[in-house]
Design a protein around this nucleic acid. Structure first.
Lengths: 387, 387
DNA sequence: GTTGATTGCTCAAGAAGTTTGAGTTAATGC
DNA sequence: GCATTAACTCAAACTTCTTGAGCAATCAAC
């Protein structure tokens, strides 16, 4: 029998890499931090933290923000992330469009662009990316040698599965290893995941899930996806296809129905089209707020989502379930207000400090920003066995 | 804002601890390994592996098993786990019984005992454990100073939740921190989890899930639980209550029904009682193989489980879903044979090498053995940020 | 205002663990 | 028999973290 453990051994260099990320993570999470404080939080000596801080400052990743006079003793020097210290590229590939974003180290988007695609085959996609990268290089020269990596998001499922062959499949990618293709073409470290998991990381790095370690994200893309984060690490599944919640069977008065047919972008568009309304874009949808047809859809979608959230809560026990993606904020808020969660749930705890359900805060670009957030998260969070 | 990262910094000592576990893990997974082979697999130098191997051998955890003549070059010296090099204690607390097991380092049970409990309150439980430990000490003197820790399994959910108040709750534990209580009383490192997750780890350490990194385990206890392992790490949920799959709503011709009412120990017992049959024990149940009442139950349980497995597959994308626990092997096999999984699933892959569904191999003691397996796994698998 | 306690931080030395490179040993292939 | 291959050991170098002494800056108490 041959071992299949994929973990790496530790040595001084990899320990330093781990500790650098840990220090960055504390500075990022705390907004502003002193050396001694980081040392206490991480179990490192102040001297070790000092050395790492000096290195990070020399690399331009953090900057000093003055002293903090909070009580007795020598006031600690505070450090914060230097927003322009590094950048992360986020790329979202959709069947008919390519979206790209450049995030600074603080998680703010400094460049976003959408390019329509005739066909999302590898050649077209890589060509479009090359064109957009040239534009980024022209506008953000600093990002040229300071880009940590590129996160790539494609709609799952990946590889050939029982769900393959649907019209949502991207042409020409089935037989390829996308990670390797992008690493080769972009010459950058690559993180790869589906839209829902990326959205979840976007909320963790810059949004509503900051400080959370275990949570779930219901992502409205074309269909409906579920992003899972457990103990700060993404849950990807054995083949990268975790989170296919759209196929969940929901009980309705008319019989079982797929969740995606009740609560998704496509479902609301079809529903409104039946009423003679156009809602092909988020803007069009937003303009229809309060329309009886929208209310009618909400009345069907909310109970369906309640069942789905209940399943997620019982199976995964998240701190919070987020709703977000390509849906107007008012629709998401209306959904959350209408989702009546059962009291008989492991998530119904008297000691909870956050709501069971919350809206994601990253807006309609969530997945694209999330792609870049995959890279930022790697800079802030050490991983098991991957130094 | 205060940081909530719980990860530890790395230093030389903690790196060694990480590397020791990695080497142990490779030796365990491979059954037999040479130093150079481990070095290649772990990314460590052969010298580092040599040092660790020498240390592990001095500690009695591994032993030399001769040379392997496989080709050119100097034949490598092989090492294997020394079964009696260390022990792990497994404790399962049930409402009416306490089960205890001592596993050697190879995962073989060298002592198992069941003690009936009048009442599973903390005093009775700890008193019973103390008595059983004395017995173990008398029979396995070696385990006295060579016990790595104790794994403790209690039925979830933990803490006060919306599911609390059911008759399955253990009396007097709601307000306590069980981990701290056991650590104090046993004076051993403690791992704590629910029965389903422990069962999953039992299969990973000694059973059918060896070599798997991402899988799920449907555990038949009193109710029905789901154990999740992702990238080799348990998925516990934010409050330790992940895996409450028994409350999943299943569509039946008669309308929605809770999974636990269709497929669990209690459900088959009730079903057989309605037919005038006694099936209070696994033995009694085994004796009823082929009885029409059992077949009738299977006909209802299998489609219900098919829906549940389908949900788990789509949400979690496991390599395999295991079925096991307090159910006779023939019943589990009959269930697996009758569970008709949909082809439209991310788990239906042409490249899969293992079945989508398999029976757990640890038998009815799975959760108790799994409790001990939590400790063994810690000896074999490094964890993120916890050295 | 001075003194002492407290806290943050630096410097230099020491400690732990890994890597590197040269050299030895033991097997195969020709 | 000789070259090749592979595993392993030894000693020195290297990286990084920790430790302990010492200094600096602030608050609190007298």
């Amino acid at each position: 029998m041959v071992s299949v453990l994929s973990l790496q051994g530790a040595n001084a260099e990899r320990a330093r890499s781990h500790n650098r990320r840990l220090v960055m993570g504390h500075v990022h999470a705390g907004g502003q931090m002193g050396r001694a404080q980081i040392a206490r939080a991480s179990g490192l000596s102040t001297q070790a933290v000092s050395n790492i801080i000096a290195e990070l400052q020399a690399d331009g990743l953090i900057r000093q923000t003055g002293r903090l006079g909070n009580g007795r003793g020598h006031p600690p020097v505070q450090y914060a992330i230097d927003p322009e210290g590094a950048y992360a590229l986020g790329i979202e590939v959709r069947p008919t469009a390519l979206l790209i974003a450049l995030l600074n180290l603080e998680g703010t988007a400094v460049f976003t662009r959408r390019a329509a695609l005739e066909r999302a085959d590898p050649g077209t996609v890589l060509g479009t990316i090359a064109r957009l990268r040239a534009e980024i290089a022209a506008r953000h020269a600093r990002s040229g040698d300071r880009t940590l990596g590129a996160g790539v998001v494609m709609p799952g499922p990946f590889g050939v599965t029982g769900l393959s062959g649907a019209e949502s499949d991207l042409p020409g990618w089935q037989q390829l290893d996308p990670r390797a293709v992008f690493a080769e073409a972009l010459d950058l470290p690559i993180e790869f995941d589906n839209d829902a998991n990326a959205a979840a990381m976007a909320e963790r790095v810059t949004g509503a899930a900051q400080g959370l370690q275990t949570y779930a994200y219901l992502y409205f893309g074309t269909g409906l996806g579920l992003g899972l984060v457990s103990a700060g690490q993404r849950v990807a599944g054995a083949f990268g296809n975790a989170g296919e919640i759209g196929h969940l069977s929901i009980a309705t008065p008319e019989g079982p129905e797929r969740l995606e047919n009740l609560a998704s972008r496509l479902s609301i568009e079809h529903h409104l089209a039946d009423a003679g309304l156009q809602a092909g874009s988020v803007e069009a949808l937003e303009a229809l707020q309060g329309h009886p047809a929208v209310t009618h859809w909400l009345d069907r979608a909310a109970p369906a989502l309640a069942q789905a959230v209940h399943v997620v809560e019982n199976l995964f026990d998240p701190e919070t379930v987020f709703l977000g993606g390509a849906m107007p904020a008012p629709v998401l808020d209306a959904l959350i207000a209408r989702i009546d969660l059962p009291a008989a749930s492991v998530s119904n705890r008297p000691d909870r400090t956050r709501p069971r359900l919350a809206r994601g805060s990253c807006g309609r670009l969530t997945a694209t920003l999330g792609a870049a957030a995959l890279i930022l998260d790697r800079a802030f969070t050490p991983r098991v066995g991957t130094f």
